[in-house]
């Protein structure tokens, strides 16, 4: 949709809105909007605001022990102030985990979105046969649950049971240790790319299909090749979809959990605190310290929020700039 079209539509909806008679200030109709909003508000409060509030409350408290800490009354919950937060921020494991996730994200996001865009453009090109089948095949890995995908890949990474290693061995080639050292990042990124490309491709492809054919015709009349059409017409027009998929991918990267957790038992290279979310899980359910887990969770939520809004604002500013041009 071009900016001009959007503007026209906005004006149109505004006209329509002005035609609707305003509700009178008196009478039972005044409460109607609230009645309609009530279910959403209740659900929001119960399942969103309340848990967040509870997590914040937990994060400000801690357990204190008397004596040997055995028997009843040996533990009590006390106010901790911001101690859990300062402890979490001072813990080098949290920062290390964030850095590991950053490296992982630097591999996953560009590769996955790049592949998704290439696949979407290929499927959208003229004279492509088997478009439906191709789309389905590329999308299929997304339908495999993350834990199962990680398990499958884990088996493929383990040298002694992997057909990949057997083939390399038969060919006399060196066998890489995919579960150790820096190769681990590639191994983990590969699982995410394999599983996520199809979904992002569908999003981009759908918005490609929405581009009116006249634009291509005009471009061709101007002497554009297929490649030029892709670069100068299609990609600029699907930028909103690219922004959206980028946004989703960043959030998914920050929340990476099931792949490293599933691979963890197979190798020495994935500590229990590999990603910040794994640290929260380990604190809450491994070591049973729900209070510091809550504090770390709040910190992660804040960072995610800041990153997402920062990115959306930057994307919005660029879009406005483009519009002004």
């Amino acid at each position: 949709m071009t900016p001009r079209m959007t503007r026209r539509m906005t004006r149109h909806t505004k006209d329509v809105a002005e035609d609707v008679p305003r509700p009178t200030r008196r009478g039972p109709r005044r409460g109607a909007p609230y009645a309609f909003l009530a279910p959403a508000i209740v659900l929001f409060l119960l399942f969103f605001a309340l848990p967040i509030g509870y997590a914040i409350q937990l994060s400000l408290r801690t357990v204190e022990v008397q004596g040997l800490g055995l028997g009843s009354g040996a533990r009590r919950e006390v106010w901790a102030g911001l101690a859990n937060y300062t402890d979490a921020l001072a813990d080098p494991e949290l920062l290390d985990g964030a850095l590991r996730v950053a490296v992982y994200g630097l591999i996953v996001v560009p590769v996955m979105l790049g592949l998704a865009l290439v696949f979407a453009l290929l499927l959208d090109a003229e004279r492509v046969r088997g478009r439906r089948a191709g789309r389905l095949l590329i999308f299929l890995p997304y339908a495999i649950p993350g834990v199962i995908a990680a398990l499958l890949w884990g088996f493929l990474y383990l040298p002694s049971v992997s057909p990949l290693h057997r083939t390399l061995d038969a060919l006399g080639l060196p066998e890489p240790d995919l579960l150790g050292g820096n190769a681990l990042y590639l191994a983990l990124a590969n699982i995410a790319v394999w599983g996520g490309t199809g979904f992002n491709m569908i999003v981009i492809h759908t918005s490609l299909r929405a581009i009116p054919a006249e634009l291509y015709e005009a471009a061709r009349l101007d002497g554009c090749s297929q490649l030029q059409i892709a670069l100068r017409v299609k990609i600029p027009l699907v930028t909103p979809s690219l922004v959206l998929t980028f946004f989703f991918s960043i959030i998914a990267t920050l929340q990476v959990f099931s792949e490293p957790t599933t691979l963890r038992p197979l190798t020495n290279s994935v500590p229990t605190t590999w990603s910040p979310l794994m640290k929260v899980y380990q604190d809450a359910f491994g070591t049973g310290d729900i209070h510091s887990a809550a504090a770390t969770a709040v910190i992660i939520a804040l960072v995610t929020l800041a990153l997402s809004f920062g990115f959306l604002r930057a994307a919005g500013a660029r879009a406005r700039q483009g519009e002004a041009r």
Binding site: V65, L68, L70, N268, S269, P271, T272, Q282, G286, T287
Partner: peptide
């Protein structure tokens, strides 16, 4: 002791790194 789970978690991480 009262925090075997903490010791076991620390063992997993520290000894995995040392073994690797």
């Amino acid at each position: 002791g009262p925090n075997v789970n903490v010791a076991y978690g620390a063992f997993n991480d520290a000894f995995a790194a040392a073994a690797e």
